[in-house]
Simulated scan of single mutants.
Amino acid sequence: MAKALTSSLISAFLEMMAAERGASAHTLDAYRRDLEDYVASLLAGKSGPVDATEKDLRRYMAELGAAGLAPRTQARRLSALRQFHKFLYSDGYRNDDPSSNIDSPQQGQTLPKFLSIDEIDRLITTAANHPGIKGKRLLAMVELMYATGMRVSELVELPYAAAARDPQMLIVRGKGSKERLVPLSDPARDALRDYLDVRDAFIPSDKSDGHADRPGQSSYLFPSRGKTGHLTRQMFLKMIKDLAIESGIAPSRVSPHVLRHSFASHLLANGADLRSLQKMLGHSDISTTQIYTHVLESRLRGLVQEHHPLARMAGHGS
């Protein structure tokens, strides 16, 4: 009975997250895994989410630390628990929130990993030398990632309509179904045009009309024969890992998120401001964008050394 009740509570919470907050399928899966692990711990201690105490939550967080989970992972789990318990409280399943006084684990500042401009050039040059229609698709995807800083889920789920008319700006649907406009560079537009010429070859054949060789229809910019209907995040990850090896870059240093970080870091290093970057990345809070301030600090130090009169005078000695 307890298991059935907790399962229904988790399902109700996930339905709320999807309906009211526009959570993606990937986010919902992560929440489900985290909450199922939490509930299993509660049930082992003869408790449940409706009657769990602050002590139960602290014990669970201690278990995560003892299991060796990184502080960042622990913090993500705690965030899921907090949202779950706020839901239980607001919907009347319980009359308090036992998670309200629990602090997040201390985390060190982790700087984003990014590639140099030269390394990005090598990736793009290698992709441009790939033959055939798959080469055109690969180049278009890499150029779009680096030109816009999109999340990989946003890239693979781009609708065909967003890019069908050689746009100078791309409409990207991000977290919570929020839309934002991002500008396209000329190289990205060129690569996109070349890819659109061959896009139909990636659309599954329409066998329903008796023509197995005739392309069907797809609403995605990067269609696929898989059940999602579009190229998956996992497939794109494999594509750029292979591209990294061909470019003489360690594949462990390359991922879609590294391309996103590279976009942001290179923009800031060349004069962009944090507010503009926040809008292009689709961050709802400027504090998220501030992880890139290490680039600003480096640029400001360079400006002072190059232009401040006292810095120039110091180079002459006394």
Rank of each mutant, 00 (worst) to 15 (best):
S276D: 07
A244I: 07
M150A: 00
D194N: 14
T289V: 06
A269N: 11
S153G: 12
D206I: 08
S218R: 03
H266D: 03
K178N: 06
G229M: 01
L221Q: 06
E179I: 10
I249R: 05
L281N: 00
G271L: 13
Q234C: 09
V198Q: 04
Y195A: 05
D273E: 09
T289F: 04
L243A: 03
F202S: 09
S284F: 00
Q234D: 08
R165H: 11
P215K: 06
S224A: 11
Q217R: 15
I249W: 05
V172W: 04
K207L: 12
R225H: 14
H283N: 02
I291F: 08
Q290F: 09
D190F: 12
P204L: 10
E157V: 03
S153T: 07
L181A: 12
D242K: 15
L237E: 14
T289M: 08
D194S: 13
S276F: 05
S219P: 12
T228L: 15
A250F: 07
Q290D: 07
L155A: 05
H266A: 03
I286F: 06
P183Y: 02
D206H: 13
G176T: 03
A264E: 04
V156N: 00
A163P: 06
N270E: 05
Q168H: 14
V172N: 02
F202L: 11
S185N: 00
L277Y: 08
D285N: 05
S205A: 15
G174M: 02
M169R: 13
R189P: 09
D197Q: 15
P223W: 01
D285G: 04
H266Q: 01
